[in-house]
């Protein structure tokens, strides 16, 4: 990993849908080594925030800045540094898991994508099924393929929208350990979730969204998770 630590900064980001705001002036900075959980009720703006950070959508006001140390990233760098795992998994259903990973490696200019694909298959636990098309996979296996995509892309920041969807209990534990490990390796990780246990197990920081507004920015761990979800549930009135 080159340059200084990676910073992902939201500056007063707002996003509009029709005549309503989905996000209202959201500002924060996430940096290398942080594993940030984004929590909030359905429709609080979690997915929109992640897709704006990833560049999938443009903000209507405000901006997203990606920087390495003090230096702002170029467009090409931004694209190769950010890895995105949305609800729609971005994997080709009619390619095999291995082909998907190899394809991602080539797109992201990674050295030796074929070899890397085999390694990634092993680490997401799909070595046996790697040559089946993704369409024949269960949702959990598709989710693993999509997580493998992030690994194969060599991204420095991971943006994951409810990444535990479809995973069984052991898969979920594996995922959380993976996210923690990414943070230790110096990646910036942001993920959205509805489960306090996931925040407790993986997050170093929790952001709470309510009605498109960033209402809390708490440290991770069990206390932060409890406070964050108290805020989420408190807003339910």
């Amino acid at each position: 990993m080159s340059d200084g630590p990676l910073h992902l900064r939201c500056e007063a980001v707002a996003r509009v849908f029709g005549r309503r705001h989905v996000l209202r002036d959201v500002s924060f900075t996430a940096s290398s080594g942080e594993v940030v959980a984004i929590v909030g009720r359905n429709g609080a703006g979690k997915s929109t925030l992640l897709s704006i950070l990833a560049g999938r959508r443009l903000p209507d006001r405000g901006r997203v800045l990606v920087a390495a140390g003090e230096r702002p990233a170029t467009v090409a760098e931004t694209r190769s540094w950010l890895g995105f795992l949305p609800h729609d998994l971005l994997v080709y259903p009619d390619l095999t898991a291995r082909e998907n990973l190899e394809f991602t490696g080539v797109l992201h200019g990674q050295p030796n994508p074929a070899k890397r694909a085999v390694e990634v298959l092993a680490s997401v636990g799909l070595t046996v099924d790697g040559d089946r098309t993704v369409r024949t996979f269960s949702r959990g296996m598709q989710q693993r393929t999509a997580i493998g995509r992030l690994m194969a892309s060599g991204a420095r920041a991971w943006l994951l929208d409810e990444p535990s969807t479809g995973l069984d209990e052991s898969g979920r534990r594996w995922l959380l350990e993976l996210l923690v490990a990414q943070g230790r390796e110096g990646r910036t990780v942001l993920f959205s979730t509805h489960h306090p246990s996931e925040v407790e197990a993986a997050a170093t920081r929790v952001l709470v969204l309510d009605g498109g507004r960033l209402v809390e920015d708490l440290p991770g761990g069990s206390q932060g998770a409890a406070a964050a979800f108290a805020r989420v549930d408190g807003g339910r009135s």
Binding site: G55, R56, A76, R79, D88, Y92, P93, T104, R149, S153
Partner: peptide, 14 residues
């Protein structure tokens, strides 16, 4: 369109 794959291309460095 399936799985929003076009964005795996557009968000890549390509």
């Amino acid at each position: 369109r399936e799985n929003d794959c076009l964005w795996s291309l557009l968000l890549s460095p390509a």
